[in-house]
């Protein structure tokens, strides 16, 4: 990764990122799956709830992935079933990031009591294993999409609080913040102009990792029967629905499994690739 010494230009982080093979691969994979999920419904030959074939009908020319437990066209459902996976995992990861960062920064800034209280409560939540927490909340409040999304966000937020507080503590003590404070800049401005940009990269990397987790957790919930409720088409739900037919009509399970795996893989590669490249840039620039 040696660069000609003459290049004194400001490094362009975006270009650096795209130069890394892992990032490119992860990005392409993620974009492809997301595009498949978002545009898929437009190309579905049938409505996801149409009963067009026999139960667990095998793949044929008309139905490349066969039919499912009640006679839906699996291909149409695979095309239609990505939207919920994509938006639910994205929104829950973003929610966790936003709420967690806000609390983490608050803790780092406020110090003392507020800090201790926040940290202590993240301890409480971290002592609950993720899935148990989600199971309890979902069976308590129901399985509407937004409840599941919120619950997953709640499960992930304490981790973000820890992370953002830690980074912010490191930054808060640095000279430029102290200088800004001495110059009498308002705190909000310091927060948004100085601190947030410098902690953005690790948080975005964490967002990508949470996305992978969210995909796993949402499909795991659906697998246990606590996820999205039928008749909606949803990749996680499809695994659950057609699991009884796994040995008869495996395509009905493997279609969604493959897409979930690819989506998780893509986001994971992307997040880690970005993480690796940015830390390399940091090493160079320091």
């Amino acid at each position: 990764m040696s660069r000609p010494p003459s290049s004194f230009r400001k490094p362009n982080p975006l270009l650096d990122l795209l130069r890394a093979r892992q990032v490119r691969f992860g990005l392409v994979l993620s974009v492809l799956v997301v595009a498949f999920a978002l545009l898929g419904p437009l190309f579905a030959p049938h409505a996801p709830t149409d009963l067009v074939g026999i139960t667990y009908g095998p793949p044929s020319l008309d139905a490349p992935l066969g039919h499912d437990y009640i006679g839906h066209d699996v291909w149409s459902r695979v095309l239609a079933g990505g939207v919920s996976v994509v938006w639910m995992s994205l929104v829950s990861a973003v929610l966790a990031l936003t709420a967690g960062t806000a609390l983490g920064l608050l803790a780092a800034f406020a110090r003392r009591r507020v800090d201790q209280t926040i940290v202590w409560f993240t301890d409480v939540f971290l002592a609950f294993p993720d899935l148990i927490l989600v199971l309890l909340i979902v069976s308590m409040l129901g399985r509407e999409h937004w409840i599941i999304v919120l619950t997953v966000a709640v499960a992930f937020a304490p981790g973000v609080v820890r992370l953002s507080r830690g980074i912010a503590l490191g930054v808060v003590n640095q000279e430029f913040v102290e200088a800004a404070e001495m110059m009498g800049y308002p705190r909000g401005r310091i927060l948004f102009r100085e601190i947030l940009p410098s902690i953005l990269t690790p948080l975005l990397v964490h967002l990508g990792i949470m996305l992978t987790w969210a995909i796993g957790m949402l499909s795991g919930l659906a697998f246990l029967g606590y996820g999205v409720a039928p008749p909606a088409a949803d990749w996680g739900l499809m695994i659950n629905e057609n699991r009884a037919g796994l040995l008869i009509q495996p395509a009905a399970v493997f279609g969604p499994v493959l897409l979930i795996a690819l989506f998780a893989l893509g986001t994971n590669l992307l997040a880690e690739g970005v993480g690796r490249v940015t830390s390399r840039i940091e090493e160079k620039t320091t």
Binding site: T49, D50, L51, I70, P230, P231
Partner: peptide, 10 residues
Amino acid sequence: GANAALVFAQ
């Protein structure tokens, strides 16, 4: 029951 509901809805 759930399967019947889906069929009846159609």
